[in-house]
Design a protein around this nucleic acid. Structure first.
Lengths: 252, 252
DNA sequence: GTCTATACAGTGATAGAC
DNA sequence: GTCTATCACTGTATAGAC
């Protein structure tokens, strides 16, 4: 049986899944509150831009569309952002900060490799659903972030994520929780693609075909994918071991 | 042990993986051959368009770029195609025909559910790599094909693919080759996303991080993913069963 | 902070000469 | 079958009034 900590305190899956950043916190703290803060408008624009970028891609989205979405004229956008690309930077920087916070929470997590793997899968899936727009952008327009030097910090975050996953998988193999013949390199990518594409599917619940309108809840879908990942990595003799239900009950 | 047919004749994985369509065959057969057939120029344009659509998306690709790629002037493209969208239709119709041929070959395949599942995974992965451009388009611009009615035939092909996969998985569960608790609906999508995203990764061998420049051959990568899929679906007591190496030796 | 007005390059597509 | 020339429109971005 895979070992996990008590379930309370600062080292549980729950804490990782709840990891959030708090943008604009400093500004609010140092100034008296206003009825309409300027940051709101900016965030409103970013939200609209993120949605369009996620749905049509960055290149295919126009500033006219973004402006229309926030009921403003195109020219007025340039009071808030210098270029369209600056909007993309603002959007993905938020996400990169969130990823960093998640990584730190995961690395501080007590428990064995399997517990940490489950925690990372759940955190990743939930983040994808909670922040679908930016995750879809990073996922679908990944060529853009790979190619352009201005977005090197995105790749850096992905590398950190890779290293963390590598440590988890290697630890698991050493502890004989995971298969001895596990190809860690291929498996890290496979799990990442599995979770990302599943999160994307879950959000745009369309799938291949139109029939079968069943309601797959978030918890059920997360449990399914945790089960998938464990089947891929677990040592054969542990394949049928149940998963601690407490690990999955993190809907908050 | 999972049962498969002899290995020769018209019912092997090899035949499915080799499924191809032969566009322009009829035209060539009924006319005397020329030094430069008009179909060549058309195919040349389609190839360039497919590449650009795959790399930047349909919307973000311009007819000027396509024209430049085939060293022609933008206006001349409209002698071959009425609209940019017509080019996309020509590209995806080819792929849909190929999918249909693959489905028929798979449905005509002798052997049990596991053998057919392995065949479908291999065929799909290899098709994704062999015809990367159109598969990437269908994969990355999937929202376009889902939304627009003119592309309903693409969705129809995906539905046929879903039904076929459903039959394979249900057959496998009935035959007790696969897990009794298998969620067929979720698993079909999971396998499809796993293979598609893996094919995309394999082609643009970049991954998350820049280190580790190992050479993963096509055969090795296919074997890895076949193994993954079988781990996801197999009954627990069959999890460690070896895969017939002959099933994988289809590089032809 | 948003507006009006606009610059100017790029977009898909067309007409007719060669 | 390709070219030249051009259309109407949309693309990002800017300047200055309010």
């Amino acid at each position: 049986m895979s070992a996990a900590p008590g379930g309370k305190g600062p080292g549980t899956i729950r804490d990782v899944a709840r990891t959030r950043t708090d943008p604009g916190r400093a500004a609010v703290a140092t100034r008296p509150p206003r009825l309409i803060r300027p940051a709101d408008r900016r965030q409103q624009i970013l939200a609209a831009a993120a949605r369009l970028f996620a749905e049509h891609g960055f290149e295919a989205s126009s500033v006219r569309e973004i402006a229309a979405a926030v009921k403003i004229l195109p020219g007025s956008l340039y009071h808030h952002f210098a270029t369209k690309e600056d909007m993309l930077h603002a959007i993905v920087r938020d996400a990169v900060q969130r990823f960093t916070a998640q990584h730190e929470a995961l690395e501080a997590l007590a428990g064995d490799a399997e517990y940490r793997l489950v925690a990372s899968v759940i955190a990743r899936f939930r983040d994808f659903v909670d922040n679908w727009e930016v995750n879809a952008i990073l996922w679908k327009d990944s060529a853009l972030f790979r190619t352009r030097e201005e977005f090197a910090y995105v790749q850096a975050a992905k590398t950190r994520s890779f290293k963390m996953q590598e440590k988890i998988l290697v630890d698991g193999v050493r502890a004989r929780l995971f298969r001895a013949d596990l190809d860690v390199y291929l498996m890290i990518g496979t799990i990442a693609r599995l979770i990302n594409s599943a999160g994307d599917w879950f959000r745009s619940n369309v799938f291949f075909h139109s029939d079968r309108p069943d309601a797959y809840t978030l918890d059920r879908t997360v449990a399914f994918h945790v089960d998938c990942v464990l089947r891929l990595v677990r040592a054969p003799e542990r394949i049928a071991e149940p998963i601690d239900p407490a690990w999955l009950a993190i809907t908050g």
